[in-house]
Nucleic acid binder design. Structure first.
Lengths: 163, 163
DNA sequence: GACAGATAGTAGGAAGTCAGAGTAAACTGT
DNA sequence: ACAGTTTACTCTGACTTCCTACTATCTGTC
């Protein structure tokens, strides 16, 4: 099934031949895109027995990390960098599965808190261990490369206003 | 808008505190996911004036690189690593915009070729230059990091059977 | 030849994301 | 005090991706 050549090296050659420019950025961006594609498939496969996908797992993990186990939906969207409607949808699914509960905000009647339930807390721990067991989809990646990737991408995230 | 802390460093601390394991893989995977999110938004924004999204641009660029400007849909799916139905959808959109044309395969009556049109060839060149102008969304990333990312991810892609 | 199994493409449906619009509530400046 | 702005969430709709199922066609083997 694997291709007989590296498609990104091939793209680099074609890109150079046409003088389209920014060749290094193109290959880096394509590598990241492809890596994400591989990762997401493996991660979602590992989460499938838990009826979770990565976005729902992220929301659940975020809630489990908070002091009170609850967060306004808007905070969740900020931390996960997703659209408010996506948060609504994600919490809808988690709530339907009994993993979180919507609770009115104690002082701000506009806001709604998503609060993780005991079932949610239990599930997120199991799911996290399942993800760790498959190295978050990074099996086959040399250990020294892990920190190289993280550090290299840190400047991108920082420049993009992540923190 | 940026958070007052690095959400990934925060996740690392929480992950360690719970003993969930594979901390380095978790941070690397999360970094890749977040980088992809940033990239895709910038790339799609740059492609928006051309009525393209990244997946359609990729298909168009792939066709433009071939000798004859045409490829069976199945080959496109293999190279881009997407589901056959996604290829159908992508080519539907490109065909509706007059950027490719469906042509019967000369010898295999099951197969359909997607052939790039002159309009498609012209557009893909302009779009490529627009992407290069924004460094493929990697603006703000130190130049030395570009090759580090690509090389680090190469082992992942290779191990995943990319080539 | 004939037929079982593989391959190519598409239709229908589920899930996820985002954008725009709308409603309700809280903040802000005069 | 209060009019105007901002913030919080949700509804609807568009778009993309995948999965399952299906038809048509090709290929290898008997």
């Amino acid at each position: 099934m694997p291709l007989p050549f590296d498609p990104i090296a091939e793209a680099r050659r074609n890109w150079e031949a046409r003088g389209w420019g920014a060749v290094d950025a193109m290959t880096a961006a394509t590598s990241i895109t492809r890596a994400h594609q591989i990762l997401l498939r493996r991660i979602d496969a590992a989460l499938e027995p838990f009826c979770l996908v990565f976005s729902r797992f992220e929301a659940l993990a975020l809630l489990s990390f908070t002091r009170t186990g609850a967060l306004p939906l808007a905070r969740i969207g900020e931390r996960l960098q997703v659209h408010p409607t996506s948060v609504t949808n994600t919490i809808d699914r988690l709530e339907a599965d009994g993993l979180v509960a919507r609770v009115p905000h104690p002082t701000d009647r506009r806001a709604t808190l998503a609060e993780i339930t005991p079932a949610g807390r239990s599930l997120v721990g199991d799911a996290a261990k399942a993800l760790a067991a498959v190295d978050f989809g990074l099996e086959g990646m040399a250990g020294t490369h892990l920190s190289a990737v993280e550090q290299s991408l840190q400047s991108l995230r920082s420049a993009a206003g992540d923190f």
